[in-house]
Amino acid sequence: MATPSIASGVAGPTAESVFGPARRRIGEKAIAFALFCAAATSVVITVGIVVSLTGETLAFFADDAVTASGFLTDGQWTPLFSDPQFGIRPLVQGTLIISGIALIVAIPLGIGTAAFLSEYASPRVRKAVKPTLELLAGVPTVVFGYFALTFFTPSVLQGFLGMDVSVFNGLAGGIIVGVLIVPTVASVAEDAMSAVPQSLREGAYGLGASRRQVTVRVVVPAALSGITAGVVLGASRAVGETMVVLIAAGQVPTTSLDPRNPMETMTAFIGATGKGDVPTGSTGYKAIFAVGFALFLMTLILNMISIRFVRRYRQVYE
């Protein structure tokens, strides 16, 4: 037992005399290192992706058949033809149209679902609906793709609605991608709405507001940045979605704006060409990376916007 050193007057207090013997910290350090490695993996992989994309993309633009201005402005994308054209516009347009349709579907459904779960549902109903939503989020997208191609287009669009659409068409692809991203939009939006302090709701109810008025006039505006984050995140998923559009929307890069026609998105091009027999090292092969790089930039920007919005709503109430 160490005698209190102040009382004895021999020396000042030491860490040990105050806190007791130091604990062994080796285990702590090992765990911290293991966790650091886990966290570092995603960073390393991201960097790897960027590096590989950048390398091949630079090689693509170095190709004689390609000019940067043509890539950005030309209206034709025929990389595998004998006289290839590398205008990315049809692919970007296809991506934007299909994502746009998806958002038209997913915004009302997603926000509506979120508002229902957060403001209307009883705890019991919420307990039943949320797992269902997660189930929907867990369905492999290839299943959604065949659902769109073999059921939604023939039975709903052509059959039930009697629409004049091609077997492969952007509309079915867009709508089903929309359904696919509902869970994303809904769960982020629901988090944001649930984070709105109960005191605000009580304040509004206390003034005689109905549930609808509380939801529309208080909760949604207060959660707006979080809801926006959910929508942007959904948009980013829609832009990146591959399987559904590959299967259901066709592979025709077109500048037509009519979603009843087949169209090709950036992801569908990458998916189809990548698994096809394009010779490694050819311009067409490098084009995959150039399109991938453009796609990466698009989703990166969307995700950054989304993160900004999420931060904003977290800041307000925490």
Binding site: G206, G208, V218
Partner: peptide, 20 residues
């Protein structure tokens, strides 16, 4: 109950202005 609260106002422990 919505009708009731139109006639009977309430002020809470923590000020809870709307973010407006």
């Amino acid at each position: 109950s919505v009708q009731v609260r139109k006639r009977i106002g309430m002020v809470f422990q923590k000020p809870n202005p709307f973010p407006k």
